[in-house]
Design a protein around this nucleic acid. Structure first.
Lengths: 267, 267
DNA sequence: CGTGATCTTGAAGGGGGTCAACTGGAGTGG
DNA sequence: CCACTCCAGTTGACCCCCTTCAAGATCACG
């Protein structure tokens, strides 16, 4: 199981210019980027792009497909930190520390550009746009983690799932895909780890959201029927801090039957 | 409560050199850093350094004291993202996006260096050490968030608290302070938000860890009596993923009396 | 000493973890 | 083609742990 298969062979020659074009970075001097070599690599579902704790060799930019980013405690529990999408930059921490702080596993067939680490600093020095790109990617990684914290901070399992789906929907829309017809790439177990839940609870939560008419679920295909409703429900928070000034308090004696979500009751 | 009091007045003139010295960055050309102006600002407990959603004006480096980093959902629920310490760099996202993505509030009397945003990019271009510093700070921010995710992923409240304390202890040790005599700067409510728990549960968890002889608690003063034991207990994971290969399974029919923590039973 | 915030502790109730059984689909080999 | 296996997913049952609400205790500060 979980066979580790780092595929170094089939790498197609490419250049930093391809990467910057993929990321739609306007360049003053395109030729400067062409001089730096890059590699286009293809991976199949299940392949490992890099492994936590190993020596980092390159920076990666996702060209297609979805990776699972995770880190494991020594007990073997795997915490899923993020699911990537086109344009995501992976392995930044490896560049800073020399070691990968997390693992990246392909959830489907993927292709990535790789930029050898020794080339990164010179390129950043030569191309301010690229240096800027690195900073933005780091900020994006922080934002991604912060979003996950927001998800995990939700009290109830249904709200966590709802928040995750809303985020996913937004990202899909940003990619130009449908924000309501989602195709999840990960299995329930990975999703459960991501949300900080048991996988059985994830199943039940899907069921609950479907019962409430917010979505329709068929395995990994999810159709959001009421995006506004889902958004409203996702905003349900833990009871606001005791003294927070402007927090509208309603709470409604709900909680009784739960036939409809508490959405709206929390404003 | 929570009075917003951004104190712009008492700023003492300083320079980027002071910042780099505080961070112990060895410089090839110290004079280059001295030319960039910086500001040393003092804040009192409760003061806000910057506020989520406002226009960012500077990058900050903590010289002394502890800040609470948090972001709020529109419902007024405040999620505490981190507690800072000497040398931490704040406001990086503000530099990238122009807006602060979170708020920083002083939990005690603090002092920070401020570096005006327009000066950041030129300085980074002139001083590679500073550019490197920015990248490292971003990586540190990602690590910090990831550590919090690790904390929040723990099933039980006691384990979450234990993990937090172990991390805090390590950071104190790295600062040259005692790793066993901790003085927490935050109130239970902030700690609860940080750990994703109700504040009553935090109190109870402190009580539990104390009952087990792992520590002694007096309000915000915590003395760790058995650091190894606390570490071992903090490693308790959610049941490892079903198919993880090397995960030693023990589980012990514990859960019965809970007089001693399950530490060790989980290896 | 009084007042308000902070912290602890109690009681009640339910949400979700854990375990387990069952279903269905994919892959394999006969 | 079917039997078999393995894994993903769903659903049920049980019960502990955490949230919520509430009341006390303790602390900080004027």
């Amino acid at each position: 199981m979980t066979q580790i298969h780092v595929d170094n062979r089939n790498g197609y020659p490419s250049s930093a210019l391809d990467i910057l074009q993929l990321l739609q970075v306007p360049l003053a001097d395109p030729q400067a980027a062409r001089q730096t070599r890059a590699t286009l690599r293809r991976l199949r579902a299940g392949d490992t792009l890099f492994l936590e704790g190993t020596r980092a060799q390159a920076l990666y930019v996702v060209r297609g497909g979805c990776f699972k980013l995770s880190c494991s405690s020594e007990d073997g529990y795997e915490q899923v930190l993020a699911f990537t999408e086109r344009g995501d930059l992976l392995g930044l921490e490896g560049w800073c520390d020399g070691m990968h702080a997390n693992s990246a596993v392909a959830l489907e067939d993927c292709s990535v550009y790789g930029l050898a680490l020794p080339d990164v600093t010179p390129l950043a020095r030569r191309l301010p746009e690229f240096d800027q790109l690195l900073h933005r990617a780091a900020a994006a990684a922080v934002r991604s983690r912060t979003r996950l914290i927001d998800v995990m901070a939700a009290v109830s399992a249904e709200v966590r799932l709802a928040r995750f789906l809303v985020q996913w929907s937004q990202r899909m829309q940003a990619c130009g895909e449908s924000p309501t017809r989602l195709l999840l790439r990960m299995c329930r177990r990975d999703l459960a780890s991501h949300l900080g839940l048991a996988h059985a609870t994830v199943s039940r939560s899907f069921g609950a959201l479907a019962d409430w008419g917010l979505l329709q679920v068929a395995n990994r295909e999810v159709e959001i029927l009421d995006l506004d409703g889902l958004r409203a429900y996702a905003r349900s928070t833990r009871r606001p801090n005791d003294d927070s000034p402007g927090a509208a308090r309603a709470q409604s004696s709900a909680g009784g039957d739960r036939l409809r979500p508490a959405a709206g009751a929390w404003r």
